[in-house]
Amino acid sequence: MILLYIDPGSGSLLFQALLSGLLTVVVFFKRIVAFIKFKFGKKNTENTTEDLDQIDQKDA
């Protein structure tokens, strides 16, 4: 049992249920896009471990 000393707030948890529903749609479309990209041989360029500075420099 993890004692959570940060009170999460029950309203926020209910709201997460809504978010979860919305994310079902988002994830559904992301999977389709990923599948299409895969089929066309495009490499997965998403990299969550990239540094913010690197991203900013690329965009500059």
């Binding site: 993890i2 959570l4 707030g9």
Partner: peptide, 22 residues
């Protein structure tokens, strides 16, 4: 989502929040 709508749903009143453990 996370501010406007969340703000309408989320309660800041800790008396209404009974969740303390997993």
């Amino acid at each position: 989502l996370h501010i406007h709508l969340h703000g309408k749903y989320a309660t800041n009143d800790s008396e209404n929040s009974s969740i303390r453990n997993s």
